[in-house]
């Protein structure tokens, strides 16, 4: 019960902090003071209180897009275990629904972008759907590998199964999985090297350009949804990459928060030391990730 409440609170409150940590890390690398850690919260709250501007071209779908996207990601967040704590809802094959909810979110984000009739947003939408399409097989191969290791089709079991002992036994395979999933994490959340959320040129953006015409509360919900997606996929990643348990419930929650913060710092570091890849290189990296996860599967079969 307590875990359930904490799960909901973490899902509702933590996501913007991750973005704050990433920004702070990047600022530290650049030698700047940077925006306050809580700036994303201020931004979202401010946006919820601001008026909206709608393009004359748009229809109801433009308004529904952010809502369906956020609803889908929120539903997915109920399926993913946070740290060592099982998810609120768990059933056989929940990982399929988990992946497809992101598909639903993508359908509506991209459609809302096309609703503006802007070429920029069409470009962003095309890139988003294409790159996510390539990232999806990696996620499934990785999840099959983990399902084979853990002997279950429930995300909660699959993701709480890894332990340091497992890492010692199947280290190579786990390492490949972690690498593949990190690539997927960066691609799905539109981070460098796939997409630069802070670039100034619309032509080179993916996610940011799709939401150019959204404003006010809708844009606030989009920012929150993007941060939540980072949390959800990040939780999936850290469960495999840092499978440490203390044995105490509360300490495990602390450990989870710490691991998410560490992940945010890691993303910040990647963003500071790398440049965005050329567009033609991105599919190669994503296919590479699929092959990495397939290798992991082979090593488990052996």
């Amino acid at each position: 019960m307590i875990d359930g409440i904490i799960h909901c609170l973490v899902v509702l409150l933590l996501p913007p902090l991750l973005i704050g940590i990433i920004t702070k890390t990047k600022a530290a690398f650049a030698g700047r003071v940077g925006a306050p850690l809580l700036q994303p919260y201020y931004d979202i709250l401010k946006l919820l209180r601001k008026g909206s501007v709608f393009s004359t071209t748009t229809t109801w779908l433009f308004r529904a897009g952010p809502l369906v996207t956020l609803a889908a990601i929120l539903t997915a967040s109920l399926l993913v275990p946070l740290g060592r704590h099982p998810a609120l809802i768990s059933f056989d094959g929940d990982l399929i629904l988990f992946a497809y909810l992101f598909g639903l979110a993508r359908f509506f984000t991209a459609s809302a972008a096309l609703d503006t009739g802007s070429s920029f947003e069409g470009m962003g939408a095309a890139r988003e759907v294409t790159f996510s399409c390539l990232a999806e097989p990696t996620l499934f191969v990785a999840l099959i590998t983990l399902a084979r290791i853990s002997g279950s089709l429930r995300l909660s079991t699959i993701l709480t199964y890894p332990t340091p002992a497992l890492w010692r036994a199947t280290g190579a395979s786990m390492l490949l999985l972690v690498a593949a999933l990190f690539i997927v994490l960066l691609a799905e959340n539109c981070r460098i090297p796939f997409d630069d959320p802070t670039t100034h040129l619309e032509l080179t953006m993916i996610h940011e350009v799709m939401v150019l015409d959204h404003s006010g509360p809708a844009f606030g919900l989009i920012l929150y949804g993007a941060a939540l997606k980072l949390l959800v996929l990040g939780a999936l990643f850290t469960a495999i990459a840092l499978p440490v348990s203390t044995g105490s419930d509360l300490a495990d929650w602390g450990l989870f928060l710490a691991s998410m913060a560490a992940l945010a710092v890691a993303i910040g570091v990647v963003e500071s030391v790398m440049a965005r890849l050329r567009l033609v290189r991105i599919p190669q990296l994503l296919v590479g990730a699929t092959i990495l996860s397939a290798f992991a599967m082979l090593l488990v079969l052996r």
Partner: peptide, 27 residues
């Protein structure tokens, strides 16, 4: 079959977002 279906699903999203967007959305 699972990764294949995932790829097919991803391509289906591309196809139908394109069809829906180009037909019904924009100007």
């Amino acid at each position: 079959v699972a990764p294949t279906l995932a790829l097919v699903g991803g391509l289906a999203v591309i196809t139908f977002v394109k069809a829906y967007g180009v037909i019904f959305l924009g100007n």
